[in-house]
Nucleic acid binder design. Sequence first.
DNA 1: ATAAAAATTTAGACAAATCTAAAAAATTAT
DNA 2: ATAATTTTTTAGATTTGTCTAAATTTTTAT
Lengths: 222, 222
Amino acid sequence: MNAKFSSSKENYLKAIFHLQKSDGVVTTNDVANELQTRPASVTDMLKKLKAQKLLLYEKYKGFRLSNEGRKVALQIIRKHRLWEYFLVEKLNFGWDEVHEIAEELEHISSKKLIDRLDEFLGFPKSDPHGDPIPDSQGRFTPAKQVDLLNLPLNKIGEVSGIGDQSPEMLELLSHKNIALGTRLEVKKKFAFDNSLELKIRNQPSVTISEHVAKNVFVKYDE
Amino acid sequence: MNAKFSSSKENYLKAIFHLQKSDGVVTTNDVANELQTRPASVTDMLKKLKAQKLLLYEKYKGFRLSNEGRKVALQIIRKHRLWEYFLVEKLNFGWDEVHEIAEELEHISSKKLIDRLDEFLGFPKSDPHGDPIPDSQGRFTPAKQVDLLNLPLNKIGEVSGIGDQSPEMLELLSHKNIALGTRLEVKKKFAFDNSLELKIRNQPSVTISEHVAKNVFVKYDE
DNA sequence: ATAAAAATTTAGACAAATCTAAAAAATTAT
DNA sequence: ATAATTTTTTAGATTTGTCTAAATTTTTAT
């Protein structure tokens, strides 16, 4: 029920999963770039993954994960994110120093271990970076979509839609570095005028009005 | 400061360390047997360990760990035992199901991780099997030696000496399966006559008198 | 539509860790 | 002390994952 694939294979599956998310189509070069390896090595591995039915692949024709491959990738991602949560919440690591360690921990095979860890942590829905944690069946709790006024304080939300798409609105948003996919948190809500103070990682805080907030929609994990 | 040796090398170092403890001298066959591998593979690895100055080795002449090798082995053992402690105390695993998982976890390289884990666990001195946990410098807290009357309840002690060595005493001890090296715990202390109820792993409980208890010495970790 | 560029794959090699079979050294038993 | 046995080592393969260099296919640009 456990230990099945080498760390290397698991890393390929995970990388392909992530690249599929953003691009739809994945290329040999993308993967080589993501994994800091050579395209020739990627081709070699694609053949092995295909032979194990984890990948749908015809040479020169691109590739994508099979259902089985996606399942495996999701389990790795689950492990990675649970370990990150553990490191930050229990061992007091900073969110910016846990990735590397989790890259190692995610290859520990015991399923029982990870399910017990999940329980110990209180079944968290998202990791310290705000990314959702798949449950033991590989399902995500579907993200909730709300406007910025209704995003709970200090919850990371990902911008998923803009209500008023007038050029004036878009100019304002681009000035404040807000775009589709941007990750942000509401740090403060001023009762006086319902204006909000927002924080985007690695950037100084910005303030937006209630009018703007009503027109920015975000997804977040409860 | 971290990640240095392959899991395979670490396993050899650990095995040699353990074999050195009990035998004094370690042989190629011993290691092959311990690691479920072939003698030829052991010889191959011995050469590599020697080249890295982790092992003092002349062919056909036997071998032992260098200071550096022992240091590395102790760090692996530290990691193994801390993870076992974590699994049992925090994730509610049974003491008999943690070994295999800890065999994997012990190869995670981050020293910071293991020191933080140690702190999180409250710097335990011994693992769930009663084996001492080396500190971050590789030192053991020296075991305390007491007679059985003074062994705290539910602490694992290892029989390290017998006071009265008369044939009658030895007969009694052998009948109750107590010998030098036996691991046992005091489960109950009867105030009425100071008799003790003892538990040895995988055996039914036995009772001994105060007189016997005074003559059995054990080492245990505080 | 074809030439140039880019992406991908193949061919052949290498390092790590293992194996089998055979050779060499050490130990033991008479 | 020498022959038999056991232990250890060497020689040569194998597997996994990687690489470089060259060949092939696809894409892009004119």
